[in-house]
Design a protein around this nucleic acid. Structure first.
Lengths: 244, 244
DNA sequence: CGGAGTCTTGATTGGGTTCAATAGGCGTGG
DNA sequence: CCACGCCTATTGAACCCAATCAAGACTCCG
């Protein structure tokens, strides 16, 4: 009796398919204003009044949380099809900076307009809810990594996450280009840039990854399974109290 | 508290007010089924088909993320007025276990029903969106803590978080009762139970908190500001690569 | 070329885990 | 009632992973 009842609560074509469909939907039903950005540009800023959500059409974005004492923390990375600014809905002000890490394009979606239009086109709501829900799940995975994995495994997990995102969007993933410095990666993963560097070196030494000549940001991943194996291997005795 | 104009997307009466209003709204517009739970009961389980969301009317709940290798991670705590099961919307299956940590009551909100009803009562959507958005912001704060604060400061931050939640819901917060073991707290904060214990002992020694005789889970907080001060003090040189 | 930013690698230190032992709270049953 | 076992919490001592400090090498660009 658990079979695929009434409305499609879930339909899962390929992720690439899902994203393309969603972007088409937005374009067809809303007057989307497009905004071109370059590396370093800030899409929306913490504290700013919340009016619009942003959907990534291309490029790569990081969400940066600023603590009261001025510490910055990268709390998320976003690719094509992701939504930005979601944490502004509750308080009426954005909770993070959204910073472009590369040339790209975001679509500006006024929240009020979205709500109005969604009465006629409920699929818009589904898209929004899925975006928020997916980000929640992703955040929970991040916490799991931060709390239970040692540094090497976290870095390996990060590469796999990146590769997954790239391949889900229909591109080859055996060859990825990190558009982040070691410092940014380290910040995101809760470790220092030196530790990131060492972890990558160890992986390269074990042939889990390969650096491209010229520029240590291009990384070949011969087989993604090797990354997973490396994670397990590195996952020895590490922190975080066990429950029960 | 920053006093602001009233006409806007978000209206913020006191948090207690907001929660009461939301619960009343749900009760008036939806056929809410109520479910009584006791400590240890599982409200919804990872992998289960997603149909309903749950709203906490009373009690305390933890969200537990199960990794593929069987490691469990507490990724969130939820009080009265919070929603459970939000991470199931995207995939059609719940992403976490929601476990009751005390006697309480949740209201079952079928997602499909919520969407239908929200056409007539848009405020329902606002409530849902705010709940999701608030959880996103909270998750980001957690990541900030996990990545940038040393153990002592994280524990202090946890107590302040708990006290804030309690006081926002209209109860006194100078006397809180943690309904979690040291192991659960440690798991949530990404450290071992011994470290939690030591941090609490240090705070007690500095008179930032006081243990109630009988049972080290009852904690007095003479002044919340002292907690904040303790956080700063403990926040010396700690991890997480700086950006720029 | 020179300088700034980035990355790698080594040596050392330290915060937090791990291991281990003790003590307190609480329910059960004699 | 106390004895017993179980769970939880505290505290100490030793160890270890990752941070810190410190060079040095590489890339890019004016």
């Amino acid at each position: 009796m658990e079979h695929q009842s009434s409305a499609r609560v879930t339909n899962d074509p390929s992720p690439a398919q899902r994203i393309a469909t969603m972007l088409a939907l937005l374009q067809d039903t809303l007057p989307v204003q497009k905004r071109l950005v370059h590396a370093g540009d800030i899409v929306c800023q913490v504290g700013q009044r919340f009016h619009s959500l942003y959907v990534v059409n291309s490029g790569l974005f990081k969400m940066v949380n600023l603590s009261d004492q001025g510490r910055e923390q990268v709390v998320g990375l976003h690719f094509r099809g992701d939504w930005l600014g979601l944490d502004g809905i509750a308080t009426g002000r954005y909770g993070c900076d959204a910073v472009a890490m590369d040339t790209g394009e975001v679509w500006v979606i006024p929240y009020a307009t979205l709500l109005e239009t969604s009465i006629r086109t409920p699929a818009l709501l589904t898209a929004l809810h899925q975006a928020m829900s997916r980000e929640l799940a992703r955040d929970h995975d991040s916490m799991l990594s931060l709390c239970t994995l040692p540094a090497d495994a976290r870095v390996a997990g990060f590469l796999r996450y990146w590769a997954d995102n790239v391949s889900q969007r229909g591109q080859r993933c055996d060859q990825i280009t990190l558009r982040m410095t070691r410092a940014e990666i380290g910040n995101y993963l809760g470790m220092t840039l030196e530790t990131v560097s060492r972890a990558l070196s160890r992986m390269a030494r074990g042939d889990v990854i390969r650096f491209n000549e010229k520029g240590r940001r291009d990384i070949q991943i011969p087989q993604v399974e090797a990354l997973t194996a490396f994670m397990q291997r590195a996952k020895g005795p590490t922190a975080a109290a066990a429950l029960h």
